[in-house]
C-alpha cells in the first residue's frame, strides 16, 4: 500500500477580485522507503501541495476537491485534534528557512525534547538521551543541544530541524527546499543525511525543490509540475535522459553544463497568470512545438508503459522533440511570440 496517495486535489486561494487556482487536479503516490522529488518553478503549486499534505495552508486556501490519503486515512477529513496527533509522529515537515522555524527563546535541545514528549510518554531524561543520540547520528555536536538557534550556523540549524523531524521516526517526511540557504558543501552533506535516514528508518520522502541537481542525487522518482498540474512523472534517470514533456526538456536544458552561455536554454515568456483557467495546455503559449490541438484541448495525464506519466499531445514524438529542445535556438526563435501570448 502506498504510504501517501494524493487523489485529484484541487485547491484555490480566495483573493480580492476572485480566486487564484493553485492546484488543478493533482494526483501522486509515494511508496514505503521511496524518495520522490517534486520540481517546478515559481507558481507551479509545489509548495501548496506540500502544505496541503500537512494541513498548513493559509486561511484563504480552499480545498475544492480531492483526497490526501496517508496510511489509508484521508488527512483532509480528520478533525484538528486527530490530525495533530499524527503530525510529527507519523508525518513531519522540514521547512525551507530553518531560522524562522526554531523558537528563538528556547534552546534547541529543549525543542527536540518537547517534540518527542508531545507524542510519546517518556521522561525528560529519556527524551534528552534520544535527542543526544539523534544529534550524533546527524553529525551535530552535543553542545548544539544546549545552544540557541541564532548561535548555530545555517547548516547546523537545518540539521537540527532534520533531527527534530525524524525524532519520532515518521513514515513520511515532507521536505521543502531545505538547501536553498546553504552552501554547496553543506548541501551535499544534508542530502547524504537524508539518504542515511531513508536507509535506517525506511522513511518515505517528498522532496520539494527547484534544484534539479539535488533531485538527481537524492530522489528515486520525480514529478514535474507546471501551472498547478502534474505534467510529467517518472524514474529520475528517465526524466533526465528521456524527458517527454517539452517543459521538462526546457528545464533540463537550462541547467548549466559548462562554458558558454550559447548552449544554455532559456524558456521565453512566463508561467500563466492563474486567475483564469487555461483553455488548452497551460504550457502551449511558450512551447516551441505547440500545435492547434494544444491550445484547444487540455492534454490528459497518461500512463506510460515504463511506469511514467506525461500530459502532452505530442508525447509520441518526444524523441524527435528532445533533440530539437537541446538547441537554444529552438526556444529563442519563438521568443517574441511567447511574450505576446503570455
Amino acid at each position: 500500500m502506498a504510504v501517501l496517495l494524493v487523489d485529484s486535489l484541487v485547491i484555490e486561494y480566495s483573493v480580492e477580485g476572485g480566486a487564484v487556482y493553485a492546484l488543478e487536479g493533482v494526483s501522486l503516490s509515494i511508496d514505503e522507503g521511496q524518495i520522490v522529488g517534486l520540481v517546478g518553478e515559481s507558481g507551479c503549486g509545489k509548495t501548496t501541495l506540500g502544505k496541503a499534505i500537512l494541513r498548513l495552508l493559509p486561511d484563504n486556501a480552499v480545498v475544492c476537491a480531492g483526497k490526501v490519503i496517508f496510511q489509508g486515512q484521508d488527512l483532509l477529513q480528520l478533525e484538528d485534534a486527530q490530525f495533530r496527533s499524527r503530525r510529527w509522529r507519523d508525518l513531519a515537515y522540514i521547512p525551507q528557512n530553518a531560522l524562522s522555524s526554531l523558537d528563538p527563546v528556547y534552546r534547541v535541545g529543549a525543542q527536540v525534547v518537547e517534540a518527542i514528549r508531545s507524542h510519546e510518554r517518556t521522561t525528560k531524561t529519556q527524551a534528552m538521551d534520544r535527542a543526544r543520540q539523534l544529534f550524533t547520528s546527524i553529525h551535530l555536536e552535543e553542545r548544539s543541544l544546549r545552544s540557541y538557534a541564532h548561535q548555530l550556523s545555517g547548516g547546523m540549524r537545518q540539521r537540527a530541524l532534520i533531527g527534530m523531524a525524524v525524532a519520532l521516526s515518521p513514515a513520511l517526511l515532507v521536505i521543502d527546499e531545505p538547501t536553498t540557504a546553504l552552501d554547496v558543501v553543506t548541501q551535499a552533506q544534508v542530502l547524504k543525511e537524508f539518504l542515511r535516514i531513508r536507509e535506517q528508518m525506511s522513511s518515505s520522502m517528498l522532496y520539494i525543490t527547484h534544484d534539479l541537481g539535488g533531485v538527481r542525487q537524492l530522489c528515486d522518482r520525480v514529478i514535474v509540475m507546471y501551472a498547478g498540474q502534474v505534467i510529467e512523472g517518472g524514474a529520475v534517470e528517465d526524466i533526465f535522459a528521456r524527458a517527454r514533456h517539452p517543459y521538462t526538456m526546457g528545464l533540463v536544458n537550462a541547467v548549466p553544463r559548462g562554458r558558454g552561455a550559447a548552449q544554455l536554454v532559456s524558456i521565453p515568456g512566463a508561467p500563466p497568470n492563474l486567475r483564469s483557467k487555461p483553455l488548452g495546455c497551460a504550457f502551449a503559449p511558450r512551447c516551441p512545438f505547440a500545435e492547434e490541438r494544444c491550445t484547444a484541448h487540455i492534454p490528459d495525464l497518461r500512463q506510460l508503459p515504463d511506469g511514467g506519466r506525461v500530459a502532452c499531445h505530442l508525447s509520441e514524438r518526444s524523441g524527435e522533440l528532445r533533440e530539437m529542445a537541446e538547441r537554444p535556438h529552438t526556444w529563442s526563435r519563438m521568443g517574441a511570440t511567447a511574450r505576446q501570448r503570455t
Partner: peptide, 28 residues
Amino acid sequence: QVLLNSVPTVHKSLFAQDKDGLDLKGDI
C-alpha cells in the same frame, strides 16, 4: 576541490568529480 566534488550535477562531466574524495569537517 571539495566544492567541485559536492556540486550535484544534472549533466555529466561538468567537473571531474571524485565521490569518495576529500570532504571538509565542520562548518565555516
